[in-house]
């Protein structure tokens, strides 16, 4: 099992001074995972269950047909959900993010006494290793948010550099009444998410390179790893 050393090299929040920025937030950052390859990290980041586990307050994150799912039904269906992240490429392949797919999530945010639960739908807009882009929106009562994010992996000498950015806009009551807390709260969510992502990746054993290679097989002519990695026709090696 490889050990990933995580280095917080840079983490920026939307702090540029502009008087109309206040419920629009921009976050971006870069972190490095040592002793890992782009493929390994990409594989880990392909697993919705891993993301579900990393997202603070996330009850479930599941693929759905369209951007207007029945959250009550989903809640019922996934009430006792107990799915573990895995490092098994076969398993990941079954459920890996796919470009154009929509995912529904219930995310409870907890900022002291303020505990909105957001019904969220995210769409994978682009997914082409090593780059991924997603956008989505969530609503909780008469508050809502819209976000768009991208992530780019860059293989360094002995590790992977993950560069990411998220933009979010908040609407409704929280935007209006919660001015003082929105930025730090969102900051906290983003920070916790990425640090959990790193923990999750760190805890995997997928870095045993062999696992990944062994999985090269059959069915789809792109090969399972290509599928997981979101490569189209292996053109991006």
């Amino acid at each position: 099992m490889a050990i990933f050393l995580v280095v917080w090299r840079q983490y920026r929040v939307g702090v540029s001074y502009s008087h109309r920025r206040h419920s629009h937030m921009e976050f971006s950052g870069t972190f490095e995972l040592e002793d890992a390859t782009t493929e390994e990290v990409w594989l880990a980041l392909s697993d919705p269950v891993m993301i579900e586990h990393a997202l603070p307050g996330c009850e479930f994150l599941v693929v759905v047909e369209d951007t207007d799912p029945d959250f009550d039904a989903l809640r019922e269906e996934h009430a006792d959900r107990d799915v573990e992240p895995t490092s098994d490429p076969e398993v990941i392949a079954e459920r890996a993010f796919e470009e154009g797919n929509h995912y529904a999530a219930i995310i409870g945010i907890s900022i002291g006494p303020v505990n909105p639960t957001f019904e969220t739908v995210v769409t994978i807009d682009e997914r082409d290793q090593p780059y991924m882009e997603a956008s989505g929106e969530g609503s909780a009562g008469d508050s809502s948010f819209e976000m768009s994010s991208w992530m780019d992996l860059d293989g360094a000498d002995d590790g992977v550099e993950v560069e990411w950015a998220t933009e979010a806009d908040v609407f409704g009551r929280i935007a209006q009444m919660g001015q003082r807390v929105i930025n730090p709260a969102a900051n906290q969510v983003v920070k916790r998410f990425f640090s959990s992502v790193q923990d999750e990746i760190r805890e995997r054993e997928i870095a045993e390179g062999s696992t990944v290679e062994q999985a090269q097989s059959d069915e789809d002519d792109r090969g399972i790893v290509d599928r997981i990695l979101g490569r189209s026709d292996g053109s991006k090696q």
Partner: peptide, 14 residues
């Protein structure tokens, strides 16, 4: 880290 300082309507982090 100045980037991580509170920044809101009342005062920017800087």
């Amino acid at each position: 880290d100045v980037d991580m300082m509170m920044s809101d309507l009342q005062a920017s982090n800087e």
